[in-house]
């Protein structure tokens, strides 16, 4: 593992225009802040876990990094180049190095293409002159890497289970030997037993190919094993970013504390006595987020200052950053 950051995201913001029912064409659309001022860096071979409720902007963040949704401002520096400043044609070479895995394994495979074609597509796109025999060899190579028999090549996606489909998706992401794979809730749609298989597979591949991963999930228990660093998002804002162990040992933000208290502990006596911190109420609308601290509407520790000033995102100990006025 090198200590050199391959990906640096600086102050990334993404806004969506939302027009409500009955608006006139000339009415100015409301702005929805999907991702607000997010910065982090990722080293080669590391894993960043991103956790948050659905609707907190984690998928949007992932898509903004690969330029699937336009960013409002900020930088995405990939190996020294700001991707956001590049044209589509200029971005193309970098697309080889960053791949993505999706939430719904079956929906991420074209139902009219067979597995061989699906896995080979990135290769054919970036190296159109590769001879057919090489393509076949590369495809069966990655298939065996993700634990699929290569005689399945002529099969179609609907003939596979969810876990197998996700393996196919991983094989497609691996074929170009990328440096970073963004996993957008790759296991949320799978059975628990298969979740572990897929997570273990990703960890093995990471070690073997020195991959960096961005692993998105909506609860902490999934990212726990795989992540080096964990970022907690709430309503498009970072609320805590720290090393994986630090977050578990000393969560500083009330939201993180609540999330961790919700992770089941496999020891019944501990589990029984654990004090569960409940988060009450609904996620506020991102169209008009609460003033001051975004979490204040559901925070048990909220004081007057929380509604007036937005807490800064600052270090509480080394490599442990939190956005809360009362972080102790």
């Amino acid at each position: 593992m090198s200590n050199h950051a391959i990906l640096e995201v600086k102050n990334l913001k993404v806004n969506f225009d939302v027009s409500s029912e009955g608006d006139m064409p000339w009415t100015k659309a409301k702005k929805l802040q999907a991702v607000n001022d997010i910065s982090f860096s990722l080293n080669a071979g590391e894993t960043l876990g991103i956790v948050g409720e659905s609707g907190c902007g984690k998928s949007t963040l992932a898509r903004a990094i690969v330029k699937m949704v336009p960013a409002e401002s900020g930088e995405v520096v990939w190996l020294g180049n700001d991707l956001l400043g590049l044209s589509n044609a200029e971005t193309r070479p970098y697309r080889k190095q960053i791949q993505m895995i999706f939430q719904d394994p079956l929906a991420s495979l074209n139902p009219r293409m067979n597995i061989g074609e699906i896995i080979a597509e990135p290769l054919r796109t970036h190296y159109p002159k590769t001879p057919e025999s090489d393509i076949q060899a590369r495809v069966s190579d990655v298939m065996s890497k993700v634990g699929l028999l290569d005689n399945l090549m002529n099969r179609y996606p609907h003939e596979f289970s969810g876990g197998q489909c996700q393996r196919i998706g991983i094989a497609r992401a691996l074929i170009l030997k990328p440096k970073l794979i963004i996993c957008d809730e790759p296991v949320s749609a799978l059975d628990v037993s298969i979740q572990a298989q897929v997570v273990n597979l990703l960890m093995d591949l990471q070690e073997e190919m020195d991959l960096a991963l961005i692993f998105i999930a909506h609860d902490l228990s999934v990212v726990k094993h795989i992540s080096t660093k964990i970022m907690v998002l709430y309503l498009g804002n970072m609320v805590e970013l720290a090393n994986s162990e630090d977050i578990y040992k000393s969560p500083s933000h009330p939201y993180t504390q609540a999330l961790i208290s919700a992770v089941p502990i496999p020891d019944p006596s501990v589990e029984k006595n654990k004090n569960l911190i409940m988060i009450e109420g609904d996620l506020p609308s991102p169209i008009n987020p609460p003033s001051g601290c975004v979490f204040r509407t559901r925070c048990q520790k909220a004081q007057d200052i929380c509604s007036q000033d937005k807490p800064e995102f600052k270090e509480v100990s080394s490599n442990h950053e939190v956005a809360c006025h009362f972080n102790d």
């Binding site: 690969v66 699937m68 971005t91 193309r92 697309r95 080889k96 960053i98 791949q99 993505m100 999706f102 939430q103 719904d104 929906a107 991420s108 495979l109 074209n110 597509e121 990135p122 796109t125 970036h126 998706g169 497609r172 170009l176």
Partner: peptide
């Protein structure tokens, strides 16, 4: 659909 997105991410 995600498979269209997957293709776009790859640069198709």
């Amino acid at each position: 659909k995600e498979f269209i997105e997957a293709a776009r991410v790859t640069g198709v």
